[in-house]
Design a protein around this nucleic acid. Structure first.
Length: 259
DNA sequence: ATGCCCCACTCTGTGGGA
């Protein structure tokens, strides 16, 4: 089973790019971030016609996450627990009813800039809530994964210019420490379980010719529970998507699971 | 160099992204 994550930077702007990628990459499940659409305006028919069940958690203009699945989804939950006042649509969960059912959590972790400030405080608090959610799911001992745009550069080898990010919300020691605490619960970072060398990125800024200069960062991640990591066959980044027409600034990342 | 480019929703400029 192939499960992908893709920050699409606006579903309306990706009217051609997204269906074309789905037809080529053929993921069984796609976790989408930054749909930038309310649920009512999400073009669900396009994806239903490609054989996907569509579950969205959107809001006006910003953020918004969705799950597309060719395998039936059950028990869809919208929003990250832990703060009833949080109105930003950044989290969605569902169980993929494969032969081995997998709980999938799609997330769009806050950027956190500028730092320090309230936006960075919100990021760190959001990460605490994600850690708490992971602890709850780990207690079930069922296979699950948390995937999406983490807005965290885990280590220096995950950036072309690591020094440029050391005082940025994506690369600050505190951001990296919170990401490590999530891993240290017992989660496996799928890409690093499959690939050890530097120079692999999932985001290139639209500005300053970042793609042409290969000035990238790796911020889109798959974290697998122990029972899910046992099923891991492969994890890859679809880098070439960044060079095609009307690209998002992120590219898809996917895992292949024996499920 | 708080800008470069792209997106959404328009008070066709502004706020947000990373």
């Amino acid at each position: 089973m192939k499960i992908a994550t893709f920050n699409i930077n606006g579903v309306k702007a990706r009217f051609e790019t997204l269906p074309r990628w789905l037809e080529e990459a053929k993921p069984d499940v796609a976790l989408l971030q930054e749909i930038k659409s309310i649920d009512e305006n999400f073009p669900r028919e396009i994806f239903e016609n490609l054989g996907y069940q569509v579950e969205t958690h959107g809001q006006k203009s910003f953020n918004g996450v969705a799950i597309l699945s060719k395998i039936p989804l059950e028990d869809v939950k919208r929003g990250l627990p832990g703060d009833d006042t949080d109105e930003q649509a950044r989290y969605i969960e569902a169980t993929v009813m494969a032969e081995t059912p997998i709980r999938v959590c799609g997330l769009y972790l806050p950027n956190g800039n500028p730092t320090p400030g309230p936006k960075y405080d919100y990021k760190l608090a959001w990460m605490e809530r994600l850690i708490a959610r992971a602890e709850t799911l780990l207690a079930t001992e069922e296979p699950f994964l948390m995937a999406g745009d983490y807005n965290v550069i885990p280590q220096d080898e995950d950036a072309t210019r690591p020094d440029a990010w050391h005082s940025d919300a994506l690369g600050l020691p505190q951001s990296r420490a919170a990401f490590r605490r999530l891993l240290n619960l017992g989660l496996t970072e799928a890409f690093r379980a499959c690939t050890s060398n530097a120079g692999h990125y999932s985001f290139w800024d639209y500005q300053a010719g970042s793609w042409d200069r290969n000035d990238g960062i790796r911020i889109d991640h798959f974290l697998l529970s122990p029972q899910c990591a046992d099923l891991l066959l492969d994890c890859q980044i679809d880098k070439e998507e960044r060079g095609r027409s009307k690209p998002s600034d992120h590219v898809p990342v996917w895992v292949d699971l024996a499920a």
